[in-house]
Amino acid sequence: MRKQIVPVMTILLILAFSSSAFAHFGMLIPEDSIIKPEKKKTELLLSFSHPFELAGMNLVKPKKFSVFYDGKETDLLPALKKTKVMDHDSFKTEYKFKRPGMYTFFMEPVPYPEPAEDNYIIHYTKTVVSAFNEGEDWNKSLGVKTEIVPLTRPWGNYAGNVFQGIVLLDGKPAPFTRVEVELYNKDGKFEAPYECMVTQEVLCDENGVFTFACPKAGWWGFAALNDADYKIKGKDVELGAVLWIEMLPYKKK
């Protein structure tokens, strides 16, 4: 009997660690990526999860949450309210748009300790919303620690479109950065044929540019990962530049 217990325990441990090894994503998801004039507002959900598998993790109140508009940054941290996303601690807020244009929402979380990888994770997360179908300068950097700067307009895209971005680390292109990609499987209606297909992966080229075609409508997350040049409590730190974009289906007449 004792010889049988060891393999069973080994399998359970492997399963436990493999389930926690799916890609992490900071999530910053509005109701819509394009705001119609008659609506003028959206709710935003801030969370931390494995978005395709719908496995949530607790998010403590972020270190920073703001919106960039017309070259100015506005602090939105006081407006956050506690909520649950995927049954885990998360935050939400409602934002009202007063003027047309492009609004970039940004979250810097408190470093997340990940026992399975024996490190800390910091995902600098952003999403771009077009108010009243307007917006320019969508390829401008925010100047944060690490980010994905779009080379494709980050809203108003059809499912199946190619998306390109450039990964910046400390304001400079980060060549050959690994970018993890996942669909927010919000309704849980999709299943990956193989475990390796839960998270897609692409590499940046020598100029820090990556390319990915999104095959389904919905919200897609891109997480460009690099190691920090510092440690927290003696442990390595994973820096993630995360960008969320919405791909839309064609409308039938």
Rank of each mutant, 00 (worst) to 15 (best):
K3Q: 14
K3A: 15
K3W: 12
V6E: 10
S18G: 02
F22E: 03
H24F: 15
H24L: 15
M27N: 03
D32M: 09
D32K: 07
S33L: 07
I35N: 00
K36M: 13
P37Y: 10
K39S: 08
K39Y: 11
T42G: 02
E43P: 01
L44K: 00
L45F: 14
P51F: 01
E53I: 11
G56P: 08
G56W: 00
M57H: 11
K61E: 15
P62E: 03
K63H: 08
K63G: 06
K63T: 09
K64D: 14
F65Y: 12
Y69L: 09
V85K: 01
M86G: 02
H88N: 15
D89H: 09
Y95N: 04
K96W: 12
F97V: 02
F97L: 01
F97E: 05
V110Y: 07
E117W: 10
T125K: 14
K126G: 05
V128Y: 04
S130W: 01
S130Q: 01
G135R: 00
W138E: 07
W138P: 05
G143H: 07
K145C: 04
T146M: 10
P150N: 03
R153V: 11
W155M: 02
W155T: 02
V162T: 14
V162L: 15
K172E: 13
K172I: 10
T177G: 07
R178K: 14
R178F: 03
E180Q: 09
E180V: 01
E182A: 12
F190W: 11
P193K: 06
Y194Q: 11
Y194V: 13
Q200N: 15
L203D: 13
C204Q: 04
C204N: 08
E206R: 14
V209G: 03
T211I: 07
A213N: 09
K216S: 09
G218M: 03
L225G: 04
N226Y: 06
A228Q: 13
A228G: 11
V237A: 08
V242W: 06
K251G: 02
K251T: 09
